[in-house]
């Protein structure tokens, strides 16, 4: 007993047992329904893209860790989530090298250069997609991506169609179809119901913050309703916006990314609402068909500014007795 060396650490000596691995594992679980649906709908190429995206993201993480002689941190699965989300946002026909470049940009430029986990001011996946979109928009064009596919529904990307052809196309997309994934889009971004189920699962498990999700959706609905009420002819109805494009994925999985979103209640509400608002603004008066990616990046950008609104700390402002 004399020579036994004890472990010495600081209090507390208990831990809730939560971990990053748990968090990311749950993220992956929550993404499963939408991803499975995508594979089911778009077939083997979709499976290929998802696998490649996930694995290449993890690989980049390992490579960068080796290059910079840091501890390899793939065990926390953070890069798997980044990769899978990336895969879910792109069309199934995306060439392999685009996927690999995209995950490189996402993992390295989005996350690694900022010091890895917890350091990224923006959502890494969105950084990847946004840069790809600027470089190679053609590969992210859902209308051309699926020309060789046969679908039993309107094979038009709803938002792009809305942008180019106006509200006349709205009749081709029923809310039910959008919710059930009967639309073209990213592999995992079409199955609205699946995303909602996954998102609610995450909220219940405590891994995403419900305030952001709710405010985000509220932002979309309120802004879209305002536009729609003012000019029903030029603008699409709110539910169409909510269920089309990346909106749901953004609300449930992208805007809630820990490191780039606020943690205090009021900021979370402002953040979410602003995100929803910007999406509708871009869709209705901007040049991009979907605005989710840039809108979420924009709220990521203002996150540090608004996250200073916080409840008063205990005793703050109490004068000395």
């Amino acid at each position: 007993m004399t020579n036994t060396k004890l472990i010495v650490s600081h209090a507390p000596f208990w831990h809730s047992g939560d971990s990053l691995f748990q968090q990311n594992l749950n993220f992956l679980i929550a993404l499963v329904p939408a991803a499975l649906f995508g594979i089911f709908k778009f077939g083997a190429p979709a499976l290929g893209v998802l696998t490649l995206a996930t694995s290449s993201a993890m690989l980049w993480e390992v490579i960068m860790a080796i290059i910079s002689k840091q501890k390899i941190a793939i065990a926390d699965m953070e890069s798997a989530v980044i990769g899978l989300l990336f895969g879910m946002m792109v069309p199934a026909t995306m060439p392999w090298w685009v996927v690999i470049t995209g995950t490189f940009v996402a993992v390295v430029l989005g996350k690694y250069v900022f010091g890895g986990i917890g350091g990224n001011p923006f959502h890494p996946t969105l950084v990847g997609i946004a840069i790809l979109m600027m470089s190679w928009p053609a590969f992210l064009d859902f209308d051309t991506a699926y020309v060789s596919y046969q679908f039993d529904f309107t094979a038009l990307a709803p938002l792009a169609a809305l942008k180019s052809q106006g509200t006349s196309v709205l009749s081709s997309f029923s809310t039910y179809d959008l919710l059930m994934g009967n639309e073209v889009g990213g592999i995992g971004s079409t199955f609205g119901l699946g995303i909602i189920i996954g998102g609610i699962y995450l909220i219940l498990r405590g891994y995403t913050r419900w305030e952001i999700v709710v405010a985000f959706i509220a932002g979309i609905l309120i802004t879209a309703t305002l536009f729609y009420v003012l000019h029903p002819d030029t603008y699409a109805p709110p539910l169409f916006h909510l269920f089309s494009g990346y909106t749901l994925l953004g609300a449930f999985f992208l805007a809630v990314e820990n490191s780039s979103s606020p943690v205090h209640r009021i900021p979370m509400l402002v953040y979410g609402f602003l995100g929803g608002f910007m999406i509708i603004l871009v869709r209705n008066i901007g040049i991009y068909p979907d605005g989710t990616i840039l809108s979420i990046l924009l709220i990521n950008l203002i996150n540090p500014l608004i996250d200073v609104i916080k409840p008063k700390a205990l005793g703050k402002g109490v004068s000395h007795a």
Partner: peptide, 11 residues
């Protein structure tokens, strides 16, 4: 010795 991931649990 991981960095803070900003999950907000502590908050």
């Amino acid at each position: 010795d991981s960095a803070c991931v900003n999950c907000g649990e502590c908050i």
